[in-house]
Design a protein around this nucleic acid. Structure first.
Length: 245
DNA sequence: CGCCAGGTGGGAT
DNA sequence: ATCCCACATGGC
């Protein structure tokens, strides 16, 4: 384990967790109403046993949320699940394949890039319909429309894979806190992921919570334009302190 | 209004 | 390998 970076990453995690509390990721719309889930499907402090439908919903959400805010994705997922429910089926790869690209695009319109995402969902559904169990990372990456972040999100949150997800928030926060690269290339993705995974215990629950906390921090505190540094929970260890009046 | 959002693929240099 | 662009809706 890389202890030099390990200290930084663990300290950052502790501060974020203390400040925001467990996030209860990944949200599962299909479980709203069940014990342990809130109105948006989050399940803080509770790790549910995932059904195949849950796993597939996570994979669909991972594609829909590419460069898109979750609120828009939620509406799209709602339309999709209502559509399959009206046909008395569960959300599944086969159900999505039955919908077809054109109708699917209409259902997910609110998530943006809906023509591309409809094609991505069709291809991913074909793959899931043809395998049993856990998909290979390379198998996901070979699909048109699934890059490293989407593949790792699916593996981490849907299939319990111990892979750390690197997203725009992760790069932004780590570039400010500790001078890591901000670049979004696959090269940097892999380097940063290796550094983090070598510095932290190989723990799926930790990776899940950590990524969710980084999203929370990046979305509401460590903003792109004007980060709210004045009473930031991380300011004691951050190189990028902007003093605000 | 303008900017941003839990990226990815394709093409030119 | 690196830069640039298309893809697109909805919230603030």
């Amino acid at each position: 384990m890389d202890t030099e970076h390990g200290t930084i990453f663990i300290r950052l995690y502790e501060l974020l967790l203390e400040s925001y509390g467990p996030r209860g990721w990944w949200p599962l719309l299909g479980r709203v109403g069940q014990p342990g889930f809130d109105a948006e499907g989050y399940h803080p402090g509770f790790e549910p046993e995932l059904s195949n439908t849950d796993r597939f919903e996570i994979a669909v959400g991972a594609i829909l949320t590419q460069n898109t805010s979750w609120i828009n994705v939620r509406r799209a997922l709602g339309n999709l699940s209502r559509h399959v429910r009206d046909r008395c089926t569960m959300l599944s790869p086969e159900a999505v394949l039955d919908i077809g690209t054109e109708v699917l695009a209409g259902l997910i319109r609110s998530s943006g890039y809906y023509n591309q995402k409809a094609r991505k969902l069709m291809r991913m559904s074909s793959m899931f319909a043809g395998i049993k169990g856990v998909p290979e990372r390379d198998g996901l990456l070979n699909l048109w429309g699934i890059g490293p972040e989407t593949a790792d999100s699916i593996l981490l949150y849907a299939f319990d894979g111990p892979v750390f997800v690197i997203d725009a928030y992760t790069r932004r926060i780590l570039s400010r806190v500790a001078g890591f690269e901000l670049d979004a290339s696959d090269q940097v993705y892999h380097r940063l992921q290796s550094t983090i995974q070598n510095a932290l215990p190989r723990d799926t629950g930790l990776y899940r919570e950590y990524h969710a906390l980084l999203v929370e921090h990046g979305k509401n505190r460590c903003l792109k334009r004007d980060p709210l540094c004045s009473d930031c929970p991380v300011r004691g260890m951050c190189d990028y302190i902007v003093q605000k009046p």
